[in-house]
Design a binder for these strands. Structure first.
Lengths: 165, 165
DNA sequence: ATACATATGTTATACTATCACATGTCAAGA
DNA sequence: TCTTGACATGTGATAGTATAACATATGTAT
């Protein structure tokens, strides 16, 4: 990849990152506990890193930080943690960027649509209930049963739109 | 990747592949001509390979065939051809599979939704006009301007559904 | 204590994609 | 015709992403 994710915030509007990070983290603990799953140290730290960064990060970038914190420094360490978190719906995978971002609404039924700015690489998560319905309808026509859907839009974020204009 | 794309047909229903391949190819020639662009030998052969296979293929798999046909055998050869074809809307990129598939409706305004079977890796292209509208609506709420959208659903194709049941 | 499932760590390697640079091709204009 | 410039193709090298395979630990329940 040429472009680094840069400042790429996970939302286009300002807000207190520390706040939402802590709140999400405590929510996640209750959530996993209820499912009988463990938020082990690596998993917890991985999620924290993504929450703190508050933007989409590449797996190797996350791995560097894990290693700096005393965890293993080989790719499987981070990929396993990420896979777990993605499976549990706590982290989203942004395929267009080969990157990962903490989910801001864990536990809530939500079908996120990712809005990726082609200029600044910022990523925002928008509610996609309607989109999901439409995808299911399209699939039903050919007898396909949707389990998960990835929806990623590429375009211009509000800030870059203004600069362009 | 563990699974090979296998038989993965580009549609769940049967039809004459040779027929649609030829028809698409001639349509593409007219289309590019109108845009003042050239369907050079590598590009043409790349598209043919995808049309003949009639399924999603990895770039290196396409490259092998190009090399066998006397074209260059280094990755840039196939990636350049694929990038060109994707830009022109003649080939779709399936991000979940890191694969490419010939578009079956070149030139027609269409916003495809890809239905990917998690069991057999078959990929079908479904019409997604409604989905696109919904994505644009969701984006508009935060002032984001959508240029392109990737919509990929993972689930069970009709055949694998039956086996599972 | 034992046995089992789960989790972590390691080395090695596979797979996907791009960079940088040389060469070739073709059409427009001097 | 010759030159020029844009586009296209070819190459070796390398960057970036992800998984396989196997060893070791840790936890829980018998």
């Amino acid at each position: 990849m040429t472009k680094a994710p840069g400042q790429a915030a996970l939302a286009f509007s300002r807000h207190d990152h520390d706040d939402c990070a802590e709140e999400v983290l405590s929510r996640v603990e209750r959530l996993l506990d209820g499912r009988g799953l463990r938020l082990t140290p690596v998993r917890r730290r991985t999620l924290e890193i993504l929450l703190e960064a508050h933007r989409a990060m590449g797996a190797y970038e996350v791995l560097e930080r894990l290693a700096a914190d005393g965890f293993g420094k080989q790719p499987p360490v981070v990929y396993r943690a990420l896979d777990f978190l993605v499976d549990q719906g706590l982290v989203h995978r942004i395929r267009r960027l080969n990157a990962f971002a903490a989910c801001m609404h864990p536990g809530e039924a939500h079908h996120p649509v990712f809005l990726i700015c082609r200029v600044c690489d910022a990523v925002a998560e928008a509610p996609g209930a309607r989109v999901r319905t439409a995808v299911e309808a399209a699939a039903a026509e050919v007898g396909f049963a949707v389990e998960r859907a990835t929806v990623e839009a590429q375009g211009l974020c509000p800030a870059c739109r203004e600069v362009a204009a």
